[in-house]
């Protein structure tokens, strides 16, 4: 009830925003007819100076792409979720454990994705969902670490994220997260590469506009991992970062690098308040 009222408020706000703010689609997202997704807010977090409102990338895609995300049977990203759900129950490693041995059903992970990346007191460092998964694998299962962009890893992040769909992103930006957040913010406004483009040039100053056929979004990551139609597979946050930096004719950073972890903290915080939407579908 409360969610539905919120969704219709969002629809009105989105509609009003169309004229002033280029043209994110005026539409609302409910997945499987039962999970309302907050894809727009008219109040970005106060620590995000450059945004007055937030839009999920869903608003910048065509109607058929938006429709695919409304039903899990039409969402090809759910194939990865299903593969990970099978993996969830499979014993791997020297300890003879599966994910399910400690965590029971994947639904026990509800809420985890909303806080990612999250500072680990035990490890004394900022950790993404991929890092928490590998920590479990190597330290509790006695299994091999997965590579950042291995299909098994990306699928597992999709599964763990999917059980948080509809919950608001809520990444910490203060306390031990502060230095990571500051580093990420600095990167967000740095004009990299021979084309001298910052994240902000496209995703803060020009969302809604077109670079050739690309309809620029706010670069929100609440829908990651995303199923990209052009790749026909799920893509991690850092893989997308890598592609964006490459497209500025710059030397990119590596997935899992300290730079991309910091950037993820900052970019995730720009979406605080939007619903987790993963696995989403994009171009």
């Amino acid at each position: 009830m409360k969610f539905r009222a919120l969704a219709s408020t969002c629809a009105i706000v989105a509609f009003a925003g169309v004229a002033a703010n280029a043209d994110p689609a005026d539409d609302t997202l409910v997945i499987n007819g039962e999970i309302p997704i907050v894809t727009h807010t008219d109040a970005a977090p106060p620590y995000i100076e450059g945004l007055t409102e937030q839009y999920s990338g869903w608003h910048f895609r065509e109607a058929d792409t938006r429709a695919m995300e409304q039903d899990d049977f039409d969402n090809p990203g759910m194939l990865g979720v299903e593969a990970a759900a099978a993996n969830w129950n499979e014993v791997d490693g020297t300890a003879g454990k599966a994910c399910a041995s400690c965590h029971e059903a994947p639904e026990s992970m509800a809420g985890v994705r909303t806080q990612m990346p999250k500072y680990s007191e035990a490890k004394g460092t900022m950790m993404t969902l991929e890092m928490y998964i590998n920590e479990c694998r190597t330290e509790r299962m006695g299994a091999e670490a997965w590579g950042w962009d291995d299909a098994a890893m990306v699928n597992m992040t999709a599964l763990i994220s999917s059980v948080s769909r509809g919950l608001p992103m809520n990444v910490a930006v203060d306390g031990p997260a502060a230095p990571y957040w500051e580093q990420g913010k600095e990167m967000y406004y740095t004009r990299y590469g021979q084309l001298e483009l910052s994240c902000a040039n496209c995703h803060e100053d020009n969302y809604g506009n077109y670079i050739r056929a690309d309809h620029l979004s706010q670069g929100q990551i609440n829908g990651f991992p995303v199923y990209r139609l052009k790749d026909a597979k799920l893509s991690s946050i850092h893989n997308r970062f890598k592609g964006c930096v490459r497209d500025t004719r710059a030397e990119t950073f590596k997935p899992g690098s300290p730079e991309f972890i910091a950037l993820e903290v900052y970019v995730a915080s720009r979406g605080n308040g939007l619903s987790v939407e993963s696995p989403s579908i994009r171009n």
């Binding site: 740095t190 004009r191 990299y192 590469g193 021979q194 001298e196 930096v245 490459r246 497209d247 500025t248 004719r249 710059a250 030397e251 990119t252």
Partner: peptide, 8 residues
């Protein structure tokens, strides 16, 4: 440039 790359 900052982190100039070899084209794309």
């Amino acid at each position: 440039y900052i982190r100039p790359g070899d084209a794309f």
